[in-house]
């Protein structure tokens, strides 16, 4: 199939950027979206040009490295699918495809389609863990976990940290990502001791980088792992409880 690509090119962080057009001819409908970009890039190099830089690695929807806006949709418009899992058979011959990086003030463009997602690491560092040092853990079966709790926790833990939710949000809010990690840990018995401290620390770090949530729901729509927006409700509830639990601390702010 033959396609026309309109791609965001930007030479480096803080540099000006612009859209440029490329012809992608003779693309196999069985190839993946990123394989299509590989073909375009190989031709660019052959012509002595600089290829389009994009982030990717596993190419099977699990590492969370890939992710671009495709015709205005994060990871394209196929539901529950990461950019690397998208296949060209979902497009039509002659299509014009607009490809852009994630846009959010908290995630500046580093080059072309690559953005800086390190704020997500900062949010995890703020409390996205259970504080247990290596060694000395009790036998695993001493901590029974009700199956439904384990399942819901796993549903949330499936987040791949791609940041599509933030790119999708008109406010660039980080709620879906943050709440997914909170739900993973806060739903488990092991996560209870730090539940409220964790919630406060992660929410407040998130707010340093990203906008506020006004319930648009675009995040859930864009999420390649179909992480549920219910997690945000749980997070908000825990946040309020946390604030009431520690009135003294709340009063100090």
């Amino acid at each position: 199939m033959d396609l026309t690509l309109k791609v965001w090119r930007q030479d480096g962080p803080g540099k000006p950027g612009e859209f440029r057009e490329y012809e992608a001819k003779g693309i196999s409908p069985d190839s993946s979206f990123l394989e299509m970009l590989d073909v375009v890039n190989e031709r660019l190099v052959e012509a002595g040009d600089v290829p389009i830089e994009f982030d990717h690695d596993c190419r099977e929807g699990i590492c969370g490295t890939c992710g671009v806006m495709i015709n205005g949709h994060p990871h394209g418009d196929q539901k529950g699918t990461a950019t690397c899992q998208l296949h060209m058979r979902k497009f039509n011959d002659g299509d014009r495809i607009v490809i852009e990086p994630w846009r959010a003030t908290g995630m500046p463009v580093m080059r072309d389609l690559i953005v800086d997602r390190s704020p997500l690491d900062r949010i995890i560092e703020a409390g996205g863990y259970i504080s247990v040092n290596t060694g000395g853990a009790p036998d695993a079966n001493l901590i029974p976990v009700p199956k439904p709790a384990a399942e819901s926790s796993m549903d949330a833990a499936a987040c791949i940290g791609c940041a599509a939710c933030i790119a999708a949000c008109p406010n660039s809010a980080g709620q879906l990502f943050t709440s997914a990690k909170l739900a993973h840990l806060n739903l488990l018995p092991q996560g209870q001791p730090e539940r409220y401290a964790r919630t406060i620390a992660m929410v407040e770090t998130m707010e340093e980088f990203f906008g506020s949530c006004t319930n648009h729901g675009e995040c859930e729509e864009a999420c390649p792992k179909s992480i549920s927006i219910d997690n945000i409700a749980l997070m908000n509830r825990d946040y309020i409880v946390a604030k009431f639990k520690d009135r003294r601390k709340a009063g100090q702010r």
Binding site: Y129, T134, Q190
Partner: peptide, 22 residues
Amino acid sequence: NEIIDQCTAQGVPFAREYGGLL
């Protein structure tokens, strides 16, 4: 065996039986 204990304590959501065990 220690690995499984460690990971469980960290909150790795391993698959469970209905009784809550691994």
